[in-house]
């Protein structure tokens, strides 16, 4: 993992966060908005492994927490776990079909939405109610799945060419390119 790669992942996540707050949140249909940051975190976890997934998820989540009104650290915890889990599960798959990232993102959005809501409810936040929660989680998962092919293509294009080999072998799961050779 080179410094260049770290910078690239960080910049991609920051761009996603900026777009999320300024435009994507504006395009919410039927009371739910897609979660671009989560999609990017999951895509990086799939291409670069659980290490990048969890650190990227933690960083992006923390910045989202700082820019929001809820208790600090909630999204950092949720996105960190999601990034790690996506990278770990991906290691058990031999090849990455075009639908794999979509499945991952769909499941991740549902898991993230429900766990974030559960944590908020545990802390006594009045913003969570059953009806709106189910609707918004379902819709968000749907939107995220639709976004995934484009985001995944962009994230893959950002990866260096020799990463493609790693993708096929599935060794990318260790977050460290040298793991392939061992």
């Amino acid at each position: 993992m080179s410094a260049y790669r770290v910078l690239l992942v960080a910049l991609s996540l920051f761009t996603a966060l900026l777009l999320q707050t300024t435009v994507v949140s504006r395009l919410g249909f039927l009371g739910a908005q897609p979660d671009l940051v989560l999609v990017v975190v999951v895509c990086f976890a799939l291409t670069d492994g659980p290490g990048v997934g969890m650190v990227g998820g933690f960083g992006a989540g923390l910045l989202l927490d700082l820019l929001s009104d809820h208790t600090l650290g909630l999204l950092a915890l949720v996105l960190c776990s999601i990034g790690y889990a996506s990278g770990i599960v991906r290691a058990y798959l031999d090849r990455l079909a075009i639908t794999t990232p979509m499945l991952f993102v769909g499941a991740a959005t549902a898991a993230a939405g429900l766990s974030f809501a559960a944590l908020l409810a545990l802390l006594g936040d009045p913003r969570i109610t059953g009806g709106t929660l189910l609707r918004s989680v379902t819709l968000a998962a749907l939107y995220d799945v639709v976004l995934t092919p484009f985001v995944f293509a962009a994230v893959s294009a950002l990866s260096r060419p020799r990463d493609e080999m790693n993708l096929r072998v599935g060794a990318a799961a260790h977050g460290d390119r040298r793991g392939v050779r061992r």
Binding site: M54, F58, L72, G73, A76, C80, L123
Partner: peptide, 18 residues
């Protein structure tokens, strides 16, 4: 180890902020 560290940090932040 890093995962445990990050999760511990999250929980610390949540506790302090809450």
């Amino acid at each position: 180890l890093v995962l445990a560290l990050l999760i511990a940090t999250s929980f610390t932040l949540i506790t302090i902020d809450y």
